[in-house]
C-alpha cells in the first residue's frame, strides 16, 4: 500500500492503481474536511443554511 512495503515496485501497475486510489481517497478526505470545516464556521458565525432539495 505504501512505497516502504517490500512488495512495492515503481512500475506502471502501481502508478495506475495507487494513483486512482489516492485520487479517490483525497477527494473523499478533502470533501469531508471542507464540509466539517464550513459547518463549524457557519455554526460559529451563525450563518446556517437550510436544505430543500435532497
Amino acid at each position: 500500500m505504501f512505497p516502504f512495503s517490500f512488495e512495492w515496485t515503481w512500475d506502471m501497475s502501481h502508478y495506475v492503481f495507487h494513483g486512482g486510489l489516492w485520487y479517490a481517497l483525497s477527494i473523499i478526505g478533502l470533501g469531508m474536511t471542507y464540509c466539517i470545516g464550513k459547518s463549524a464556521y457557519d455554526t460559529i458565525t451563525g450563518k446556517g443554511g437550510h436544505h430543500e432539495d435532497h
Partner: peptide, 20 residues
C-alpha cells in the same frame, strides 16, 4: 446547529461524492 449545517453542507457537495 452544527449538525444542521453539516447536513446542509454535505448536500451542497454531494455531487462530488456521488461522482467519486
Amino acid at each position: 446547529p452544527f449538525f444542521h449545517n453539516l447536513s446542509h453542507n454535505m448536500h451542497e457537495v454531494m455531487a462530488v461524492f456521488a461522482a467519486t
